[in-house]
Amino acid sequence: MPELEQAPDRGGPAQPLLIVKGLAKHFPIGSVFRGRQVVRAVDGLDLTIAKRETLGIVGESGCGKSTASRLIMSLIAPTAGEIVFDGEHVGTAGGISLKEYRRQVQMVFQDSYSSLNPRLTIEESIAYGPRVHGIPHAKAVARAKELLEAVGLAPGQYARRFPHELSGGQRQRVNIARALALLPRLIILDEPVSALDKSVEAQVLNLLLDLKEQFGLTYLFISHDLNVVEHVADRVLVMYLGKVAEVGPGDAIFRRPAHPYTSALLASRPSMDPTRRRTEPPLSGDPPNPIDPPSGCRFRTRCALARDICANSAPDLAEIGHAHSAACHAVVPDSGYADSRRMVA
């Protein structure tokens, strides 16, 4: 009888679970008459996730974080780049097959309702994936009940319900159970708590941290909410207009941000102290349209530190501390920033 098991650790603890190199997605826009334009939604993304680690990706709308998650999940085809999963190339000969990769990597979306089939009971929804992978129906349903228990929904009460009969928080628990059903090693969480009320958000975050321990999981956690990312992530990657601005350990990013964009994001958070309110917005204006990004450093149009060099060349991600890198001319010693003139507006 077929049995699903979590795939064994092949590369050992030193081998990162996921390595992404030069991942890019350019969406074509425009018409026959105006020539081809592309939106560089993700433009050269490098990242690694160690085993049992949580990597947080933060950024504002249009920064490409959701496109990045879909690329990594291989829901959309990349324009360029490669993905290595536990030492094996994804989807190439001799590497891990796409089907097996998609079993070992699961995803939970922000919209808990539209990611469930409204015509299936939640136990059927959870059992669906394992059945596709050859598990007999009865066994898959029994397993679905165990998973419901694991995500804190009493199976006797909830197993036979339909998605519309549950609250948003309960549906998100079902989505998590569904992701767990295939015994994945990596779960991509794309804004999993953004649509939830605060008190429910806390329940789901606690649950996610518990499940991580219980099932030995690795998380890629995408969110626009810095507080949530600070709470859950071991390492944090900050994206701006399709590029990585800064990446490093959570402590470093939140205590000693190097990139001016990261600092601005942190300073944009409400102070949580009514006697010491924010007085100046750290940035003015909205993020620029990704269809027409600025030349050089994409952040320079909103950056207080911008100089001529920032318009002329795009900064590469450079190591500035232990496992901590930033893409900013101003923080990299030999970038030529010191000799460059201030931008004249």
Partner: peptide
């Protein structure tokens, strides 16, 4: 509600729900 609100300083702790 306040215990459930994530903020700097809750890292590594269980949120009260």
């Amino acid at each position: 509600l306040m215990g459930a609100t994530v903020h700097s300083g809750t890292r590594g702790k269980r949120l009260t729900t």
